[in-house]
Design a protein around this nucleic acid. Structure first.
Length: 446
DNA sequence: AACACGGGGAT
DNA sequence: ATCCCAGTGTT
């Protein structure tokens, strides 16, 4: 058996298998290039089962390229909430605006034009061109690399860029004449349903007879893939600041900067407790006393007087490159002006003591230096009072902003449960806020 | 080439 | 609890 026969066997049998076994997925019910595009962006790093409800809601809210282009960015982010990799949402909308301006609202069929869209790389360009327009372009994702590395017994590390290029050349050769749309989806479908990462179902595989990997007994050791670095741990102190007076029933949240981790998402205020530990090690928890002092100090530095009352809960949030180990403290807003000087003095002293002892103390978000923080954190009690006593959000937003870090302006807001409908939160803060509003942390007092 | 960038599922 | 999964953008 030669390579040419092996390739033909693969293409023919895989395509036949797919035409019988293809899943009925929302984005497969119509040949709508916009649906294909949205689904492929959502499917990056994300499983089909997770994507389905997001896709249906997203298309319901933004049924056309134009609707997406014209939507408030906040709405798009809210529709992406919980899906992760939020730059995908921002890039998708930016690309929708590109399509409106450059292509009259029609998704381009030219390879260079598709590739030029924000958030569209080699894989997604190939997927759109083949699935939406049946163009014979390879669409090589992780599924495809796994299937091809096994069937053709390719030992190259799939984490290398050169391997992806090699796979694209191979995948392109395998596309049967005029069948790019079905064949590319067949390849990925096989990887998702049969040629799975850990326990491939070789006995039901349509191409097992000529699968070099299986014949060599290598199906479990392919593809070759370098391991990712373990995420570095970060100990963070989180404040659930319970409002008093005009803020009664509300909690203090803030919006993250427009770039970087969780860009533009809302969150509970928090502060890095100490310099990040080495990846693989775990961060040492901070005792409650210094933790609460540090937290009060960092809140004070951002214009809020709050008294930490006690530990509400521990939580952990795992990103691909960071692990947040969170100590969550229930705090109370100090709304009486007479308390201000005392709270402020105590908090500042505690915070400055920490800052003086450590090389880098934490600030927010995400690790600016202590000196930067200190140099910009001199705030008058006037400013604090305004933040504390202002109920109206617009007035708060229009008030002079306090600058920290690299010139980032953080917007703070006092919110009730109803406000969460329109604000996008990362899952960890979604859970903490839901628990709080459900009354779970009510026993944390004094 | 190396790193940043979320969240979920399987065992 | 510990593993695995893996496209695009930035630098």
């Amino acid at each position: 058996m030669g390579l040419i026969e092996q390739k033909q066997h693969f293409s023919v049998n895989l395509l036949d298998w797919y035409m019988i076994n293809r899943r009925d997925l929302p984005w497969r019910r119509h040949n709508n290039p916009y649906f294909t595009w949205v689904s492929e962006i959502m499917l990056q790093q994300t499983r089909v089962d997770t994507v389905i409800p997001y896709f249906n809601r997203f298309i319901g809210n933004f049924p056309t390229v134009q609707a997406l282009a014209e939507a408030p960015e906040e709405d798009v982010l809210k529709n992406w909430e919980g899906l992760g990799y939020y730059s995908r949402a921002r890039n998708l909308q930016a690309a929708a605006r590109q399509v409106m301006e450059l292509h009259g609202g029609e998704i381009p069929q030219d390879k260079q034009a598709v590739f030029a869209l924000k958030g569209v790389g080699p894989y997604t360009a190939g997927a759109i061109l083949s699935i939406a327009f049946n163009q014979p372009q390879p669409a090589v994702d992780g599924n495809v690399m796994r299937v091809l590395s096994r069937y053709f017994l390719i030992d190259e590390d799939i984490m290398k860029g050169s391997t992806r290029v090699l796979m694209e050349e191979l995948a392109g050769e395998l596309i049967p004449e005029g069948r790019a749309r079905d064949f590319n989806q067949a390849l990925m479908e096989l990887g998702a349903l049969v040629c799975t990462p850990k326990a491939p179902h070789c006995l039901t595989c349509p191409v097992m007879e000529q699968c070099s990997g299986r014949i060599a007994g290598r199906e479990l050791t392919l593809p070759v893939k370098t391991k990712a670095k373990p995420p570095r741990p970060e100990q963070r102190l989180v404040a659930i600041v319970e409002g008093r007076g005009v803020h009664r029933g509300r909690v203090l949240v803030r919006q993250r900067p427009e770039s970087g981790l969780l860009a533009r998402m809302w969150e509970l205020p928090h502060v890095l407790a100490e310099p990040p530990a080495k990846a693989g090690k775990k961060a040492a928890p901070l005792a409650d006393e210094p933790a609460m002092a540090l937290l009060a100090g960092s809140l004070w530095a951002e214009g809020f007087a709050a008294r930490p009352e006690g530990l509400a809960t521990h939580a952990e949030h795992v990103f691909s490159h960071i692990v947040w180990q969170l100590q969550v403290y229930k705090c109370t807003e100090q709304s009486q002006s007479s308390e201000l000087p005392l709270i402020a003095a105590e908090a500042r002293a505690a915070y400055d003591a920490q800052a003086a002892t450590k090389d880098t103390v934490a600030t927010d978000p995400d690790g600016q230096s202590a000196s930067t923080f200190t140099s910009t954190s001199s705030i008058t009690s006037d400013q604090v009072e305004r933040r504390m006593l202002t109920d109206d959000v617009e007035v708060l937003d229009n008030a002079p902003q306090i600058h920290i870090g690299k010139g980032d302006q953080l917007t703070y807001r006092w919110i009730g449960p109803e406000d969460m409908d329109k604000m996008a939160f990362p899952n960890i803060f979604l859970k903490l806020l839901s628990s709080y509003f459900a009354g779970v942390y009510d026993d944390i007092n004094e």
